[in-house]
Design a binder for these strands. Sequence first.
DNA 1: GTATTATCGTTTCATAGCTAACGATTATGA
DNA 2: TCATAATCGTTAGCTATGAAACGATAATAC
Lengths: 161, 161
Amino acid sequence: MLEEEKDTINRLSKMPLGSLDLDAVSVVTNIYRVAQGLRNKMEREVLSKYGLSWTSFSILYDLSIWKAIETKKLAESAAVSKATISNITKTLEKKELCYRKTDTRDRRITYVMITAKGIQVMEELYPEFHKREVEIVSGLTVNEQKSVTELLRKVIRKNQF
Amino acid sequence: MLEEEKDTINRLSKMPLGSLDLDAVSVVTNIYRVAQGLRNKMEREVLSKYGLSWTSFSILYDLSIWKAIETKKLAESAAVSKATISNITKTLEKKELCYRKTDTRDRRITYVMITAKGIQVMEELYPEFHKREVEIVSGLTVNEQKSVTELLRKVIRKNQF
DNA sequence: GTATTATCGTTTCATAGCTAACGATTATGA
DNA sequence: TCATAATCGTTAGCTATGAAACGATAATAC
């Protein structure tokens, strides 16, 4: 077990909180710790050079894959609010990495599309990003990677994340 | 494999990006997805009632465990910047959940402490939070929980997250 | 056909979060 | 001693984020 976890559990068990499911606490704590760590690492070592935050990168990533996509779908995919998508695509548009276009039939719908410059940035950026991804999980064997992925998918399905 | 993952990998493999380590991509993608999902769920279903964000909750949680702690340690523990800690503890102080005190010897250091009201909120809040934690991982057996925790710890150690 | 309801994107306003710059303080070194 | 460096917390200025409200539009009901 990691040092801070020991300390925390020690003190937690002294609080008047009734019985705790320590296995559940550990899963949640460590998932969030890894997620925060990899987000910070990516922003610091890769994304900052391009002036992109984690979320704006993930939006650009979606755009590079889907070419044209409604803002509503973007919000679902990145698990953020429509308002956030509004702001981020506005920022990306300022950087000329994407542009927006209202649907001619249903004018409530806005499509977001990646620009040539956006594609170019992505093709330069993604290999760097992917290199870090591989590094980050390199402490696990391939079988362990497959295993943790399968377990996480189970959690995602159960909770509809 | 989850549906969106299939789509994404399909399109990714058509991009001119060279070879990809798909196992690594899956690990990183699913870790972040679970983390985002549980954060959103907690904020929506538990923390919003108390006007707390995920981060301010985690700060309050640390305070309830450590009683008095330097802002620097808080920043490390929550993996956010010192500036963020300044802002969040200021907000918590406004809600009378904590207070700050400068060290008498070394006046560069500020200690943050939880108030009686803060403890009270935590004792009411944490059982609810913990209940959701248990729910979220309830799709996994205890052995699976231990397994995913051990694998994540390996990633944390390797990357010093 | 018209009124109601639902949906979509945006704006507004608050907090969260970062970096960089700053001021205060302590530690170090000549 | 006294100047320089190092460290700490805060502030300023920016983007990110969500909830709620808004306006425009489309779908539905009558």
